[in-house]
Write a protein that binds this DNA or RNA. Structure first.
Lengths: 345, 345
DNA sequence: CTGAAAGCGCTAACAC
DNA sequence: GTGTTAGCGCTTTCAG
């Protein structure tokens, strides 16, 4: 079995050449050490013959570099995060890094475990979509000198770089569009509002209201989770208690699905009875019974930028604490009713 | 900075206790070596104080076990694979393994690179959704003694365990449903047909035809990729050339989306003009303009089973070459037109 | 141009 | 009960 246990030592032995020389050649440092062409050729040939693959574990132990990055996210099965993972993976590979994936299930407890474990594994850096907002484990991690960058969410109180969608602006745009379409009573179905992603979207919503001199209404804020279930429950309550509401801004695709279910069950229709815009575009939205207007976020690009930032930090080329915001796009479909200019008092 | 450089050695030094004793205590082998309670307490306290975290790299080098598993899949951003990754991750964590993620983009060339890289990283086992069917790199890998299990797809010529949906049965069921609903001219939009997943689905389709004494028609087989684009192109051709076709079996959700687009553009409607069933359920299917009947595959469960199988192999508790098939579910919605019993000659 | 040797942090066989 | 020692496979001074 185990054919491939070729090591520097074994090659060195069969060739009668020292380990260091073999190492140098196989690490492309032959020129630098002016090793003779003959020796180089011999070593390369033998390495090839036994299909030598350097033991990265040994290398990592010695060099204190694992070329590995920890990715800690709350739900890899959510297309929202998996598309970020895609960008992250592509960029990591280009730079010779591998990704250690850890799904925190959105639980701080598991996130703590992840950080502990990955630190033990001596990863060169962390990319985290934090599950909570008061993570001492992240502060400790950062203080230990390990590069960290947040993805999708940031924690205000921490001086840690992040890259996210421009959520404030995105929600501002979406809400403004609703308002200029003639809606005056707009509900906001929120996600986990202690997370910056949800909070910033709520902020953008409020900004738009203010801009157009519309009053905030406490009972128009509903929901406390990005889930289908939460969106469903929120919308049910909304439809019962606030008949004057003509539009909903949903802060996640899962929330929107719940909303659609509740609207359907109430025998109402989008957009005739109620308009809907949601965050997190999905190509399928174009084929819904009412094609859904949505905020498309550049998740793969977020992944790419995040990885570049982290790698720059690992290389000591940057230690910025910058919060990078990427532009989103409002994709207009048919789920928003447009009132005549003169339709409302 | 780097506070956490506590090692066995450093603890041993500050306590004046030998490294091995420290190691034994910190690996919960105190009892076994009958180390005095006092010593145990002292060591644990100090380890805690300096928040000792064992260097897994050193441990791996020494023990030849990395507690790491390579996951090589063609597209992590595809919900189909990311939901498998979810199950894989959950099960891996339970068993103390971490996942090294590599996205092959469906390219054999990158898959080869992945295998090389992960072997260098000395992972304890591989989970692969192979991109092609003649992978010498996989044969070499297996022969080197590294546990491997295929996920979602298998390669017939290789004696390697696999866990997949029961694609033959799933397609057989779906096609049978179409036939018993009165359809006689059913097209099959295929994915990458050299992969077992697509090929087996095609097989199930054919089995159903045979069962009901319907002839196969070469021009009813279209498509050669799991993509939106391929589904779109295939359906366009179909609608032009085969007006007698009343139903389509689509072998992936992306294909189905392409089909929907083509059908829409042709001014036709589902299911009045053409019926559609697709593989890969999506919760959004319930909210489409025509709720889409689909084959739901237990992807997360596939992930879980795959990981269990691999870990059993790593532990030497199994070296089966079993092909595990998991049951799928046909989810009936409204995209299939049901003809009257007497509607066709 | 090439080699010897130390050591990364840990485990485990072998002492006593 | 506890300590000593020899590596795992590699990188990297330091010698020559």
């Amino acid at each position: 079995m185990n054919k491939s246990t070729a090591t520097l030592k074994s090659i060195s032995a069969t060739l009668g050449i020292s380990i260091s020389t073999v190492s140098r050649v196989l690490n492309d440092r032959a020129k630098k050490y002016r090793i003779s062409d003959a020796t180089v050729a011999k070593i390369k040939k033998e390495a090839d013959r036994v299909s030598f693959a350097p033991n990265q574990i040994a290398s990592a132990l010695r060099s204190q570099k694992t070329k590995t990055i920890a990715l800690v996210i709350p739900d890899i099965s959510n297309s929202y995060f998996s598309s970020m993972a895609k960008g992250l993976g592509i960029e990591a590979r280009k730079a010779g890094y591998s990704l250690l994936l850890f799904d925190s299930l959105g639980q701080e407890k598991l996130e703590i475990e992840a950080v502990r474990l990955m630190r033990s594994r001596k990863v060169d850096g962390f990319i985290i979509a934090p599950a909570s907002t008061n993570g001492q484990h992240i502060i400790d991690l950062k203080e230990s000198g390990t590069p960290v960058v947040f993805i999708d969410r940031y924690i205000k109180s921490m001086a840690i770089a992040s890259v996210c969608s421009d959520n404030v602006e995105a929600a501002y745009q979406a809400t403004s569009y609703l308002i200029t379409s003639g809606h005056q009573h707009i509900a906001c179905i929120q996600g986990l509002n202690y997370l910056s992603s949800s909070a910033d979207r709520t902020l953008g919503y409020k900004k738009a209201l203010a801009k157009y001199h519309l009053a905030e209404n406490k009972s128009y804020f509903l929901g406390d989770d990005f889930s289908h279930q939460s969106g469903y429950a929120a919308t049910k309550i909304l439809l019962e208690n606030c008949p004057q509401v003509t539009a909903i801004l949903s802060l996640s695709h899962l929330n929107a699905m719940g909303a659609m279910q509740a609207i359907k069950e109430a025998g109402k229709h989008i957009p005739e009875d109620i308009s809907l815009i949601t965050f997190d575009d999905d190509p399928l939205f174009a084929y819904l019974s009412t094609p859904l207007t949505s905020v498309d976020q550049p998740n793969e690009a977020i992944g790419i930028e995040t990885m570049q930032l982290l790698i720059a930090q690992i290389n000591g080329e940057s230690n910025s604490t910058e919060q990078k915001l990427l532009k989103t796009q409002l994709i207009l479909r048919d789920s928003v009713k447009v009132f005549n200019k003169d339709s409302e008092a």
